[in-house]
Structure formats: C-alpha cells, structure tokens
C-alpha cells in the first residue's frame, strides 16, 4: 500500500490550505506523490490521495491523465526527455532520439530492462535557441549532438 512520508502528509496539508480551494492542491500533491513513488503515480496512490485530500478520485484522475509531466507508469531512474518539436527536429532531434534509443537499447516511452532509463519524445521545452536539447529529470541539457548526449547520459548512469 502506498503511503506518503510524514513530511509528505504535512506537505499535502499545507497545500490544501494554501490556495482558495482544496482542488487547486491536486497538481502539487500529485507531484509530491510522484516524487515519493519512484517517479510515477500509481492507481492506488490516487485512491490514497483522494482519501487524504477528501476529493473525488475522478477529479484527481482527470488531472493525472491530462498533464504530461505525471507518469502513469513506471519510468527509469533517468527520465530522458528529448524535445521533438519543430526547431529541435530541424536540427536533428529525431536522429538524436533514435541514436539514444539504440545506444541504450530501449524503445521510446518505455523503461529499460534494468529500470535505469526511459527515453521519451516530448513537445517544445522552450529552449529552441539551444536545439537540439533534452531534459533529464529536472535539468535541461542543450546544444546536443548524438555523441554529446550519449556521453552525458553515460556519465549520469555511471555516477548512479
């Protein structure tokens, strides 16, 4: 059974009081659940949150499924999100994605067998002047080539 840490529960309580309506706390609380649940939001954690926040499960599930930053299935420890929008594509983002998927032997949006990496194609991340670029977990990596991106990821995998 999923449960938030005491700190997490306090966070939820604070968020519930922070905005004009309780409902506004759904997004921040889903972030918190995702953080404490290895990077994704499971159905049981939605039920848990529903009870904790005293809000209908359907409302939470609507939010969960609407926003792309919430992962509905497990993701790798490194969540590599390569921008595949227009400026990045013009400068080789798709070739870069293909290269990374091949190198790390994983299909786009799927988690690698060892659970260490997921490579996703995402929409514009607002860093078009440094295309192609990718986001790994919370951080941006810019002006990439297939080689430089591979090196960054390998470095992080080894560092783990």
């Amino acid at each position: 059974m999923f449960k938030l840490s005491d700190e997490g529960i306090n966070f939820v309580k604070k968020e519930l009081a922070r905005y004009e309506t309780k409902r506004s706390a759904i997004i921040p609380c889903l972030y918190r659940v995702q953080k404490e649940n290895d990077g994704w939001v499971s159905p049981e954690s939605v039920s848990y949150l529903s009870e904790l926040m005293e809000l209908p499960e359907a409302w939470i599930n609507e939010v969960l499924n609407f926003y792309t930053m919430f992962n509905k299935k497990p993701v790798g420890k490194l969540h590599v999100q390569v921008c595949n929008n227009i400026s990045c594509c013009m400068l080789g983002a798709r070739e870069l994605t293909d290269h990374l998927c091949k190198t790390f032997n994983v299909k786009p949006e799927e988690i690698s067998e060892d659970g260490k990496i997921t490579i996703s194609k995402v929409e514009c991340l607002g860093s078009c002047d440094t295309a192609p670029m990718m986001q790994i977990n919370d951080d941006y990596h810019e002006n990439l080539t297939p080689g430089s991106a591979e090196k960054i990821i390998k470095g992080m995998l080894n560092g783990n």
Binding site: V46, S47, P56, E57, A58, W59, N61, N65, F66
Partner: peptide
Amino acid sequence: NELGIFNRGDRSEVGTFE
C-alpha cells in the same frame, strides 16, 4: 462525482476511476 473524462485530445475517455 464518479465520472470523469480522462486523457486529452482524441484519446479522451469517459469513465470512472479504475
């Protein structure tokens, strides 16, 4: 409040949670 429309665009699906 049991029903919702989940996901977005032409992937949207009506239903109850789980």
